[in-house]
Amino acid sequence: MLVFTRKREEAIIIGDGIEVRILRVGQDSVKIGVTAPPSVPVHRQEIYDLIRAENEVAVRRSGDLHKVIARLRERVGHT
């Protein structure tokens, strides 16, 4: 891991057109500004991890799909 010391309003540049700028430094948190092209999504890691975990559970499908579909159809009136 590359480690940088930055002051407020200083930035680092990553690759082509990604800028990470330190905006404010508090006691327990740092405010960061990220500028990136639209093709580069930027996420808070804990939210990305939450959705990744749910996607991984979703592809495993531990229950019985046929039962779920049958129940859905009863409710929406499919035959």
Partner: peptide, 13 residues
């Protein structure tokens, strides 16, 4: 995305 749990209940993301 739909997730099916081991008790055959389904949730939607």
């Amino acid at each position: 995305i739909v997730t099916i749990a081991s008790d055959d209940t389904a949730t939607v993301n």
